[in-house]
Design a protein around this nucleic acid. Structure first.
Lengths: 358, 358
DNA sequence: TTGTAAGCGTTATCAC
DNA sequence: GTGATAACGCTTACAA
């Protein structure tokens, strides 16, 4: 049926040539095959409602017949939109981020958007570089973790009109769209439980707080609880380290070598806590009889570790999902989505108990 | 110094307008500012060696001054290269893939390439869709997991001239570039250990084998070892399920409810094994005294679970790294990299022991 | 409803 | 070494 149109060629084609050249078919090829203009083909693909049933049909047949698939670079260049959304996370080595990202990606995929990934290794300058890189690559929007970054970078993003969503934190005072929970409050609630259990000498293993607002807020949360319980916040014994089981292990040993050692160690995340757990076992300390240990995140590790870990549940899937939905909503130009606070519930399990009576 | 050139405008600019419009600066803007042609600016950016020291300097100053950053869509359209590499993995929910992907991405990032991610949820049709999607998006090359897929899709990729690397498997007989290990052989070696320990009745918990060659090969590996030990391979009790702790738990219960239950359960991965471990504990079965359990992957979960898991180490980081290097080497047009076989060593830990004497 | 044609911002092939 | 200028494949006013 389209055979009589198949031999139509546009003037811009250099030479008459076989229909089946090795280069992928273009819009023009489809247009020629269907006997319509490229504009019409484009409409069929992007706004089918603007086109007659009959032409639509014919064009779609041609598309199908030629195995046409649009060139996204060209589309992006012309429409100034890539349908790619970037995510810059500290690392996929931690399940909490990997799984959050998985949820984010699933949601994007459902809506025909593609995920562009970069990682910052918890380094501020690296993150900045990645933000520049992904926006240069044409990311329509960005998912970022936490608030802390140079104001200049926010200005840059704003000037470029790149929508940004901050995940893993929630602070209505901040002017950015976000989905997450109050890190400080969550940790404070957990610390309250620790104090209620009777602990008076606390230790803390945390990631570097300099460029990591989540880590900082969590430590502050512990101090808040201490202050509220009339305990001097500066008696909190803190070890800053990197996020890994091994680091948690070593940090724990460091905390426990002092005289007047803490009776409860609160860790910035589950990975550190599992490391602490391992060190404790290795040192012959029973948990929670000899020392209490808490985590943060509630990853699988936490529930299958030798002693089920007392921790805080971080709603990673819901954050990832909502982040994707919100960002795509912003891009669609509809009403601006609201920031969303999610609960971060305590998981009271086996590693927290009252301290031994001295 | 470039001020006298700053007022030069190209004819194609519609109207005289402020230098500082809201749109990001383009090559033409830089060219105008530096008093050279766009071609020269392009050269400065891509082939600096073709340009005078002096002009290079002037152009770079203009770039810097205007805060220019190239438009990748346009670049991609003109150069037919996106510098984006796609990866389609089953899921980031499993740490083994998340961490492999992290290594892959780090390596890409080092070389200025960006990672495009999609996930298949272990579904063949979904994977096919994602392959089409990422190539349509302009991925220069693709990382795929395992060999099993429709021949048509390989043909498609070849026709499109998209380099592909298969990871997580190694089979020199296959005509594709790959990095990985021999799943069948690795599991066979582990099964040999199980048989050497004296087990005669084996069970197996695996992912669906229909569209998952790694899973299938691992099961075959067990059968190989059984056959070599004069045990009828069809006595292997198999439960197919999805990959999750909960599934492993349930599959274990299912295997242990029969009469003549297996004395050793070999699991397709660590997640399933940890589920089995949990079920065993819940059923009051001691591991390895009452039943032996093995895993595959050697993720962190395996070493911190209540009983350190006997498993097979999967070299995820090295696979991810090599995959990135190999793919970028192919793209650079240099000599074609070779496929690489990596060792998958056994991790003999606590969950395998001889069966109780009947 | 459909066609025409002007971009979109680069790269790349030529001349000079 | 540098500059015109034609692609690259698509979207989108504007016309018809």
């Amino acid at each position: 049926m389209d055979s009589h149109a198949a031999h139509i060629h546009y003037g811009h084609m250099h030479e008459p040539q076989d229909i089946n050249t090795d280069a992928p078919p273009t819009l023009a090829d489809v247009a020629a095959a269907a006997g319509v203009s490229t504009a019409t083909v484009s409409r069929c693909l992007n706004n089918p409602e603007l086109v007659t049933e009959k032409t639509l049909e014919r064009v779609l047949a041609a598309v199908d017949h030629l195995g046409y698939s649009p060139n996204f670079s060209a589309r992006a260049l012309a429409s100034r939109r890539t349908n790619m959304i970037g995510a810059i996370i500290p690392t996929m080595d931690n399940a909490i981020f990997a799984r959050g990202l998985q949820a984010f990606q699933e949601e994007l995929q459902k809506n025909g958007c593609t995920l562009l990934v970069a990682s910052s290794s918890y380094k501020q300058d690296l993150e900045e570089e990645q933000i520049k890189a992904l926006t240069a690559r044409g990311a329509d929007a960005l998912l970022l973790i936490g608030y802390h970054r140079d104001p200049g970078i926010y200005a840059f993003l704003e000037k470029r009109r790149i929508p940004v969503l901050v995940a893993w934190a929630y602070d209505p005072a901040k002017p950015y769209l976000c989905v997450g929970f109050r890190n400080r409050d969550a940790m404070k609630r957990l610390a309250e439980k620790v104090l209620e259990a009777g602990h008076r000498k606390l230790g803390c293993i945390t990631a570097e707080t300099a460029a990591n607002d989540r880590a900082r807020e969590r430590v502050d949360g512990i101090r808040d609880a201490m202050a509220a319980a009339d305990l001097a916040p500066d008696t909190l014994e803190i070890v800053e380290t990197t996020y890994s089981i091994e680091s948690g292990d070593q940090a724990f040993r460091q905390l426990m070598q002092d005289t007047d050692t803490p009776t409860a160690i609160m860790c910035g995340n589950d990975v550190l806590a599992v490391g602490a757990l391992r060190a404790a076992a290795d040192m012959g300390l029973r948990v929670p009889e000899d020392v209490s240990i808490t985590g943060f995140d509630n990853i699988e590790l936490a529930s299958v570790s030798p002693q089920p870990l007392t921790t805080v549940h971080v709603p990673h899937r819901r954050m990832g999902q909502y982040a994707a939905q919100a960002l795509m909503k912003v891009l669609s130009g509809g009403d601006v989505p609201a920031s969303l606070e999610l609960p971060a519930d305590l998981c009271m399990r086996a590693t927290l108990a009252p301290p031994r009576k001295p």
